[in-house]
Design a protein around this nucleic acid. Structure first.
Length: 119
DNA sequence: GTTTTGACGGCGG
DNA sequence: TCCGCCGCCAAAA
């Protein structure tokens, strides 16, 4: 055990990849929040960081960022999409109901990454 | 190397 | 019950 900087915490480089991977695992018609992802990564409380990583993943179509919202089910990140309505439209296209940037029955469509992270 | 921001979350008044 | 403040972690300026 010379260094062993952080076995529990994910490396900064893996942090982004982990976020992308988790978001990528989100099934169609499901949504999750930042806190849940951050918690799975081992950095609970770094929910802001998750959103930060997402901002870089907008270029990646492999990462359905539109399925990630805040814990209130509000499309907080819609303003960062190419089209402000694109996020809501995509969610609706997946069978979700979004009214006024608010996902209806959010808890019902909520998807817990922790259920798929370890496998 | 230090400071500020940032797609949030939880707790207090 | 509703509104507001502080805290956490990392990256960019």
């Amino acid at each position: 055990m010379s260094k062993n900087p952080d076995s529990k915490k994910v490396s900064r480089n893996d942090f982004y990849e982990s976020v992308y991977e988790i978001v990528r695992l989100i099934p169609r018609g499901r949504v999750t929040n930042y806190g849940a992802i951050a918690k799975v990564l081992g950095t609970a409380g770094a929910a802001r960081m998750v959103g930060y990583a997402m901002n870089h993943c907008l270029n990646r179509q492999d990462v359905p960022a539109h399925r990630v919202v805040n814990r209130a089910g509000l499309l907080t990140g819609r303003h960062h999409f190419p089209e402000e309505n694109s996020m809501q439209q995509r969610l609706e296209a997946e069978g979700l109901v979004v009214i006024d940037n608010q996902i209806q029955h959010f808890d019902q469509h909520f998807w817990d990454p922790m259920s798929e992270i370890e496998l």
